[in-house]
């Protein structure tokens, strides 16, 4: 027998005698019998040997391999005997986890919200982030001299476009390209030149929702949002509807939910579509009605997960991302 093989034979016999627990059994298997195990690797030496030595060496390796396999099987049977002690496997050793990543908490939140509205028949759609003043303001009944059009509130590009400040732009685009009835939600990035702090960012995410049909009432808007909020935040969630103003909805509402010691917190804005928006989009405002809502994804994710600083979302520290 080849001397290297003989050394291995001694080593392996000793190793198998020492095995007392299932985990050392596995370790033994990997070390000697596995794909990259020491015995398996011996076979690779074959090609380095002179052809006349190969046959004898191959036979030796196979014999040793068989012997070890038999001893290993016997040991396995011994250790897994029904009367083996419960402690024969160290149950505190960590499982070998496959490396798995995570979806960003913003994506998770968007998916969850989209799923609820999806069940209500709202289809997910998208629209461009670089927009025209028409889609972002004019068509949404925002007057030409409105302060939100100023460059302290809106990013403008050298090409004469702007970065959408709200996903409501998608309302206009969908109405321009499809006929009613409509039920859509549009998640996406929006941009506003806000000074960055714990609760503001110049880029964030919104989800816009729009339903248009022959007769679509404010009561139905309330019903839809109630269902969504109770499903998302839990059946005991307290909700209140507070009149508000948005140029593109009339009547308009801000929806608050009660959040423990923090009291009422604004969670979304909504309203019945202003007939002027239908006119701008080319729908007959005498024949259709609708409602729209818009919610800030970061705000909702922060509330739900107890995240104290919006900047965490964009810093992408893996210690943050792996928590969700």
């Amino acid at each position: 027998m080849d001397s290297q093989l003989a050394l291995l034979q001694d080593e392996v016999r000793e190793a198998i005698a020492r095995i007392a627990h299932a985990e050392s059994l596995e370790l033994f298997r990997v070390t000697y019998l596995g794909k990259k195990g020491k015995l398996t690797l011996q076979m690779q030496r074959l090609k380095d040997l002179a052809p006349e030595e190969r046959r004898a060496f191959g036979a030796d390796v196979n014999r040793l391999k068989n012997e070890v396999q038999q001893a290993f099987d016997a040991k396995t049977a011994e250790i897994s005997r029904p009367n083996a002690s419960r402690d024969s496997v160290d149950h505190t050793l960590p499982g070998l986890r496959p490396p798995v990543g995570r979806l960003h908490p913003i994506t998770q939140t968007i998916r969850e919200i989209s799923a609820i509205f999806g069940r209500l028949g709202f289809e997910s759609v998208t629209g461009p982030e670089i927009e025209t003043e028409f889609h972002n303001f004019t068509a949404l009944n925002i007057p030409p001299d409105h302060a939100s059009r100023d460059d302290v509130d809106t990013f403008y590009t050298e090409s004469g476009h702007l970065l959408r400040t709200q996903t409501s732009t998608v309302q206009v685009r969908v109405m321009k390209s499809r006929k009613p009835p409509l039920r859509v939600i549009a998640p996406g990035r929006v941009y506003r030149p806000d000074t960055v702090d714990a609760s503001h960012s110049f880029m964030f995410h919104q989800i816009e929702g729009l339903m248009v049909d022959g007769e679509t009432t404010f009561a139905e808007l309330k019903g839809t949002l109630y269902l969504f909020l109770k499903e998302f935040f839990g059946p005991k969630t307290k909700v209140r509807f507070r009149p508000h103003f948005f140029p593109f909805t009339e009547p308009s509402v801000e929806v608050d939910i009660s959040w423990g010691s923090r009291g009422w917190l604004e969670i979304l804005g909504a309203g019945s579509v202003n007939p002027r928006v239908f006119d701008a989009a080319g729908y007959d405002s005498k024949r259709v009605q609708g409602f729209a809502f818009g919610l800030g994804v970061e705000r909702i994710a922060m509330l739900r997960h107890g995240i104290d600083d919006i900047r965490h979302f964009y810093e992408n520290d893996l210690r943050f991302l792996e928590q969700f």
Partner: peptide
């Protein structure tokens, strides 16, 4: 095994 990030468009 990959983690999703969200980084600024600007």
């Amino acid at each position: 095994g990959l983690f999703e990030t969200i980084t600024f468009s600007l």
